[in-house]
Write a protein that binds this DNA or RNA. Structure first.
Length: 481
DNA sequence: TAACGTTTATA
DNA sequence: ATAAACGTT
């Protein structure tokens, strides 16, 4: 084997895969035998994401840079068009290869395909890997040879598949002779648009690869057994809490899959099944996004573009501010604003109220979640909203209107979640409920001493009827045409 | 991963 | 009288 400095360096182009373990592009870069230079680029695609995601990404970059320093390496940060940056860096460092893990949303794919062909025509090695999914979207096919459109058969297809074993993190780093210059992370101000006052509970989230692995271990140890039973209860700590780690790639789905399958592969272990099904929902979302990238912005079922959706406006603003007058919805919207996360069950409740009772377009909700979710994921967010609205594949039928009251009675029977996030009218409001008012922009003009809205922006009974009428109207108009 | 109004079964 | 089952949206 030749000495390390006989082989030209490789650039490891990191994006939403900010980890050292089970990182296929990193593994391949090390296998080349030469030095490896990790780089993260703030380009227009990365800048076009939501404020909470950029804030979360900044924290993750800081954690990764620290981990790399622990191995005697550095994380090189650059700003600009990705291709220009990579070309410059290749020139500066003498690198003759650029390796990365694939992304699957439309804008990233368009960029990556252009970068790959340009680098190759420069004469560089340019290779991409699967670091984000259990299975590449195009490798899962129905009997007819097409993509799956319904979750259950998709689950059956992947449940018995063998998942690639995770790759160990490198124990030492092949560093170059000298490191190229890096921008200063602080100077980028990636958190500048977080637009929330202090203290913000989002800042309590544990960030970084080590935290992700610890969270997984704690979940498996403490909560997995009760997961199927308790996962819909926002008043219990029943979920894995891994979504924000997955969103920036601090942990991979393969690591999660392997950790829940201590024995053998090929059959899903019983206690883990319900949990893995949720992981596979993420996988399904990417499967769909790969085959229909326009799903991120347009109705997956095009006939829904003729539905009389309402525009963004005052009503939607009340929804964003957690002032609809429906406690389950408002609690959820406040949890989102102040923690950057929202319990899955209450995502469905809040989204359902916006798109059904309020008749507001799912894109309005999608945009708000994109801007405020610390665990924002392009595929899951699009699928989730289209599922609720009824415009997506395997969507809830439109007439499946949730009653937020009934849902709250079922899943928050003691009102613990409600009281954690709603302060108005409480003698001793919960600290988290008060934190919302400190986080909320001044312009919202909210104070914990306000009266809680004494009637909802749209009544439950009227809203349900209005939604069903609009649906019938839209449907008969279509049938006539 | 629904809710609701109505009918039918069971005590 | 109440629960379970059913059909509709």
């Amino acid at each position: 084997m030749p000495a390390a400095n006989d082989i030209s360096p490789a650039l490891l182009w990191l994006r939403r895969d900010l980890r050292l373990a089970d990182n296929p592009a990193l593994h391949a870069a090390i296998e080349r035998g030469g030095p490896v230079i990790p780089v993260w680029i703030l380009d227009p695609v990365a800048e076009a994401t939501g404020a909470a995601h950029r804030w979360r990404m900044e924290g993750s970059l800081r954690a990764l840079a620290r981990d790399l320093e622990g191995l005697g390496a550095r994380l090189i940060l650059r700003r600009g068009a990705a291709l220009d940056v990579l070309r410059d860096l290749a020139k500066e460092t003498g690198a003759d290869a650029v390796l990365w893990n694939r992304l699957y949303d439309g804008p990233a794919r368009a960029r990556d395909e252009a970068v790959k062909s340009a680098l190759r025509s420069d004469g560089l090695e340019a290779r991409s890997f699967n670091g984000a999914l259990l299975h590449e979207p195009w490798t899962v096919e129905t009997g007819q040879g097409g993509p799956y459109k319904v979750y259950t058969p998709y689950w059956r297809a992947v449940a018995e598949r063998v998942v690639h074993e995770p790759i160990a993190a490198p124990s030492r780093w092949p560093s170059p002779q000298g490191w190229p210059a890096s921008d200063a992370l602080d100077a980028w101000g990636m958190a500048a648009d977080m637009r929330r006052g202090a203290p913000v509970l989002a800042e309590r989230v544990e960030i970084g690869e080590r935290a992700a692995l610890q969270r997984l271990a704690a979940f498996l140890e403490e909560d997995l057994r009760a997961y199927a039973e308790e996962r819909d209860r926002p008043d219990r700590e029943a979920t894995s809490g891994l979504s924000h780690h997955l969103a920036v790639g601090e942990i991979s789905p393969r690591q999660i899959w392997a950790a829940t399958q201590p024995r053998r592969q090929g059959a899903v272990a019983k206690p883990a099944q319900k949990f893995l099904q949720e992981l596979v929902w993420r996988e399904f979302a990417y499967h769909l996004l790969h085959h229909s990238p326009e799903m991120a912005t347009d109705n997956w079922r095009p006939e829904w573009s003729a539905f009389p959706w309402r525009e963004d406006g005052e009503a939607a603003e009340a929804w964003r501010r957690g002032r609809t007058g429906i406690e389950a919805v408002d609690a959820a919207m406040r949890e989102l604003f102040v923690t950057g996360r929202m319990h899955n069950r209450f995502r469905m409740i809040a989204a359902n109220y916006l798109t059904k009772h309020m008749l507001v377009h799912w894109k309005v909700g999608e945009a708000w979640f994109r801007d405020t979710l610390v665990d924002w994921d392009p595929a899951s967010n699009a699928l989730g909203w289209q599922w609720v609205a009824g415009s997506g594949p395997d969507a809830a039928p439109y007439f499946r209107v949730f009653n937020p009251q009934t849902q709250a009675e079922k899943f928050d029977p003691d009102g613990v979640y409600r009281d954690r996030f709603i302060a108005e009218g409480r003698a001793k409001p919960h600290a988290d409920a008060l934190a919302f008012f400190e986080a909320a922009p001044r312009a919202w003009g909210l104070s914990p001493g306000d009266r809680y809205p004494d009637k909802p922006i749209v009544g439950l009974k009227e809203g349900r009827q209005q939604a069903l009428d609009a649906y019938q109207d839209w449907k008969s108009r279509r049938d006539a045409a």
